[in-house]
Amino acid sequence: MRHLLSTKDVSRDEAIAILDIAEDMADVAHREVKKLPTLRGKTVVNLFFEDSTRTRVSFEVAAKRLSADVINFSAKGSSVSKGESLKDTAQTLAAMGADAVVIRHGASGAPRVLADSGWIDAGIVNAGDGTHEHPTQALLDAFTIRKRLHGAGSRGRGLDGVSVAIVGDILHSRVARSNLWLLTTLGATVQLVAPATLLPVSTAGWPATVTYDLDAAIDAGPDVVMMLRIQAERMNAAFFPNAREYSKQWGLDDERVGRLPAASIVMHPGPMNRGLEISSGAADSAQSTVLEQVANGVSIRMAVLYHLLSGTTEA
């Protein structure tokens, strides 16, 4: 694997290999010296055209734990300019000798453009592009699910037979897209739950079932309920009337959590809107994996950088 652009391109074997490497990386976090020499001398650039402190810090910690040199490059435009162009930035980074570029961009496909452009010869990691994909989020979600279900016996396993309900703004969610491909590749079944306005007009070709009814989805007893963040601007664009109605129909409140099987887990990629798509009770419950997801994010990103840069898996 040279780049990680989309989970759609990731095979089951590759995905399990990354999850297994992440298991090893997670062990590093429990050592006294949380550092491996693996990527010493390699340069990883965090190229963020959009603000995301959480994701950037997660990648930064991951790269540093592998002893890579990390450069944070914030290319966000000011109010007067559109910001530096992707091409100029890429060529600048190439001139500096970047080995891997972790890119977050507001435009769908920007990481792919970077990978195909010939402007830079570095491994590209998609850290979220527009409303397209966020592959490392899906990998860390899969890792989290696997860990909860199989604990120390996780290595080598997929997610066969696991049922996952993804709830919320499917239409605009890169997290939903990446999870859809990855979870189904690993053998899970996915149900999408949202109002019709927040579902794509066509889900033809998507390996998922679709329902508008969260209560029915809850009562089916899914192994995993994954809540997505709702953006305030969706209300103003008439996707739904107001927060109260959304919360009532599609929010994971205490009562709905109570109806889930005790073994079901509740996930959220963060940052959460407590009281809107998820209640505090649900977010802080024993079933919630919100903080594990954050911790696992570092392990997964270490695994991805290792996988791309160590050269051992180069085809």
Binding site: S108, T131, G205, W206
Partner: peptide, 18 residues
Amino acid sequence: AQMNEGALSNELGLAGWP
């Protein structure tokens, strides 16, 4: 709008032109 609205725009995460 960025491309024809349909299954593909949905997959690519590009805003649809219906």
